[in-house]
Design a binder for these strands. Structure first.
Length: 445
DNA sequence: TCTGGGGTCCTAGGACCC
DNA sequence: TCTGGGGTCCTAGGACCC
């Protein structure tokens, strides 16, 4: 620990702590296979369409970065080892990481698997000093997990995050330079950053927003004070304008949120070879529906909204979604809704990515929790599950049938199914939006 | 050189209700 | 006969984070 962190601020000056594990996925792989140590190692997709998720510092020395296309990374760094990723393993390490943080304070907010914000203010009566707490965290993570990390301290999330970035090792001219390990953003540091940093360094400013801002002549954080918030809002939206304005003054109203409720689960896959035609798409979607259903049950949630997303070979995407008046968590229902939604799409090109998502969660009812308990703990899993699903569907099947009719009504003939199913008389469905009578000739769009 | 998979949040428009 | 405005929900798309 060196530079401004050595000034040992009090809790008023450094109430927020941000901690970020170094090269997390790659580091776990090296721990599990020590023969990888010292070699350029990455975790990511290795195929033509793969990207790098995490790169060891050895790989970074050669210019490899996360989010880089793997084919580019290979060219940049011949001999690069790209491992497929074992997320169960990373989650296990992440839980141990969170356990260590929790020993310091329960007031923490995970960001992904490898980052955490802590609000240290509740530790005032214990006489905790931020820099001491940071050093202790680093020491425990090093000794108990054998992982390295950087810690940032600041007045708010904005500065704590910038500070942790400053604390990390970095590559300068192909050489690895050690970071401070712990870095505190003092008032002087804050002022320097606000004067010198590009807008791209701010949370929430990615390539698209940075480009918009640049067209307005706003490349630096200091430039943001030159325009009024209304003008800014016109170009980047009111929410972004408000946060940019606050950040430019060094203000950040975001709190450390301890219990963030899960809002959606999904499964997306990019295929090495794009899917051709609706049959291949539907077959894949069934497998994805099973994954999503399992995730829902694991989280003890039922979902009212099912969405599908398709990305074509030209990288354009389309999505369709349907919200039900009731929740579902079984693969048969999810697959049925997904199929109706997918049938409504015009597959004008081969499909490189397919995804199914479930959202608008309801708490599962108590009897349904029992049901899932039976499913997950059964030794005779398959039969138990079939029984459980059929029991669930006894109550849900009529509602589900109506929901499928609703999808078909919304999207018209393409999703209408067979004429035999419809019948000559047309059908009548009761839906959340009211009732609709329609026949084979009423398909719209 | 060419862009993953897990998510979150925001926006705009339309439907609907009061 | 013509018609407001606010609130909420849903949908589709986009941007961002790690």
């Amino acid at each position: 620990m060196s530079n401004s962190a050595s000034e040992d601020p009090g809790l008023d000056e450094a109430p927020i702590l941000h901690i970020d594990l170094d090269a997390f996925f790659a580091s776990v792989e090296i721990l599990d296979d020590p023969s990888l140590r010292g070699k350029p190692v990455c975790v990511g997709g290795s195929g033509d369409r793969g990207v790098i998720a995490s790169a060891s510092y050895e790989a970074r020395r050669f210019g490899v970065r996360s989010a880089m296309a793997s084919v580019v990374a290979r060219r940049t760094c011949p001999g690069l080892i790209i491992l497929p990723g074992r997320f169960d393993r990373y989650e296990a390490y992440s839980r141990r990481f969170h356990d260590i943080v929790r020993d310091l304070t329960p007031d923490f907010e995970p960001i992904g698997l490898d980052e955490v914000f802590c609000d240290l203010r509740s530790l005032r009566r214990l006489g905790v000093r931020p820099v001491s707490a940071a050093n202790e965290l680093r020491a425990r993570i090093s000794s108990e997990l054998e992982l390295r990390c950087g810690v940032g301290l600041g007045r708010n999330k904005l500065f704590a995050k910038l500070a942790s970035k400053q604390s990390k090792p970095r590559v300068v001219g192909g050489r690895l330079v050690e970071g401070a390990g712990v870095f505190w953003a003092s008032r002087e540091v804050e002022d320097r950053w606000l004067a010198e940093l590009p807008v791209r360094a701010l949370w929430g400013v990615g390539p698209a927003t940075a480009s918009k801002l640049e067209k307005l002549g706003l490349q630096w954080v200091r430039d943001l004070s030159r325009v009024d918030e209304e003008t800014l809002a016109h170009h980047v939206g009111p929410a972004m304008a408000a946060s940019l304005f606050a950040y430019a003054k060094g203000e950040d109203l975001r709190e450390v949120v301890v219990e963030r409720a899960l809002k959606s689960v999904g499964r997306d896959q990019t295929f090495a070879k794009s899917l051709e035609g609706i049959d291949e798409v539907l077959e894949m979607s069934k497998a994805q529906a099973a994954v999503v259903a399992r995730a829902l049950r694991q989280e003890s949630r039922v979902a009212r909204t099912i969405s599908v997303v398709v990305r074509f070979d030209d990288l354009t995407s389309v999505s369709r979604s349907q919200t039900l008046s009731f929740g579902i968590d079984d693969e048969v229902s999810i697959a049925a809704i997904a199929e109706a939604l997918l049938q409504s799409l015009e597959l004008r090109q081969a499909v490189r990515l397919l995804g199914i998502h479930a959202s608008s969660f309801l708490e599962r009812e108590k009897n349904q929790v029992q049901l899932s308990f039976a499913i997950e703990t059964s030794t005779d899993d398959a039969r138990e599950r079939a029984t459980a699903l059929s029991r669930e569907r006894q109550t849900g099947s009529e509602a589900l049938r109506d929901a499928l009719d609703e999808v078909r009504r919304r999207f018209g003939r393409a999703a209408l199914g067979t004429a035999a199913e419809l019948g000559d008389e047309g059908i009548h469905v009761e839906t959340q939006r009211g009732s609709h009578a329609f026949g084979p000739g009423d398909a719209r769009r």
